[in-house]
Amino acid sequence: MEENLKKIKEKVESQIIKIENLDGLDRIRSEVLGKKGELTQILKNLKNYSEEERPIVGKRVNELRKSIIEKMENKKEELKKEELMIKMKNQEKIDFSFPVDENLGSLHPITIVQREVEDLFRTMGFHVEDGNEVETEYNNFEAVNVPKYHPARDMQDTFWLENGQLLKTQTSAAQNKIMRKYGAPVKAIFPGRCFRNEDLDASHENTFFQLEGMMIDEDVSIANLIYFMKTTLSEIFKKDLKVRLRPGFFPFVEPGFELDVSCMYCGGKGCKVCKHGGWIELCPCGMIHPRVLEMGGIDTEKYSGFAFGLGLSRLAMMKYGIDDLRVLNSGDLRNLKQIGIQ
C-alpha cells in the first residue's frame, strides 16, 4: 500500500515538472484526482482494508492528495506567470514619442486678452456692454462732446457711410447709451471693434479693438482714478506697476489725461520698448466731462466719474510679443495658430 502511494507520488510529481501548459495540468488533475483518478479509486476501495488500516490509509491518501494539489497549484502559478511573460513579450510596441493631433483650433489673441480683462472687471462689479459698429454721428461724436467742425475730429479719420452713419471711431460711442440705460451710479466696460480711415502699416490699422470703461458715482475724484487704474493695470500685467498722469486732451473728459505706466520690460530703467524713457503711454483717461454726463441724463452736481480707454489690439501685441499690428487681421493661420487657446 505504502509503496503504491509512493509510486503514484513519484509518477505525478515527475509529470507535473514536465508539464508545459495549463491544459496538461488539468489532464493530470483528472487522471489522479478526478472521479476515476488513481487516488479516488483507492479511497473508493477503502472497504477492502481492515478496520484498523482504514483510517491510516485514508489519512495517507488525503495527505498525498493535499501535497499533489499544492504542487499543482504552484505549477499553475508558475505557468501563468510564464504565459503572461510571453504575452507581454509579444505585445505590439507603441511609440510614445509619436506626434499627437489634439484637434484643437485656436482662439483669436484679442478674444483671449478681452476675456481676461472682462473677467477682471466683472470681479470688480462692472457690467460688460457691447456697442454697435455702425453708429450715428450723434453717439460717436456729439454725445461725447465733439460737435461738427471741432478740431478733435481731426484726430480720428472717420469712415463715413452713404446714409450719414459712420463706422465707429471709438468705443466712447457707447457712453451715452450706457448712461441712459443704467443711470448713476454705474460701472461698465465696453469692448469693441473700431475703425479709422487710414493706411495700413506695422502700427496703423483701419480696424482694431478698444476697450473703454467708466465709473460714475458720488464724488469720484482724480485720486480715485489713479488708484483704480494702478490697481487694475497691475492686475492685467500681473506686475506691480507705477503709473503717472500727464495732461491729455480728449473732448469727452475734463480734465483729460494720458496715463503712462512704468515700463514692464525694463522696470523703468529705459529700454527699446519704452524708447529709453522708462514709461509707456498706455491709456487715455480722465474725469468724464460734465456736458457728457448731462447729455447722458446724469446730475453733475451730485455725480462725477472717470472713463478710460485700453487698446485691446495693443494689449494683445504686448502680451504675445507681436510687433506688427496687421498680423491680427491677417487671417493667416500660420500666425494665429501659434497663440492657440490661452
Binding site: L104, S106, L107
Partner: peptide
C-alpha cells in the same frame, strides 16, 4: 475652438 478644431479669425467688415 476646443471641440471641433476651428480657428478664430478677425476679418474686415
Amino acid at each position: 475652438a476646443l471641440k471641433y478644431g476651428f480657428s478664430e479669425i478677425h476679418t474686415y467688415v
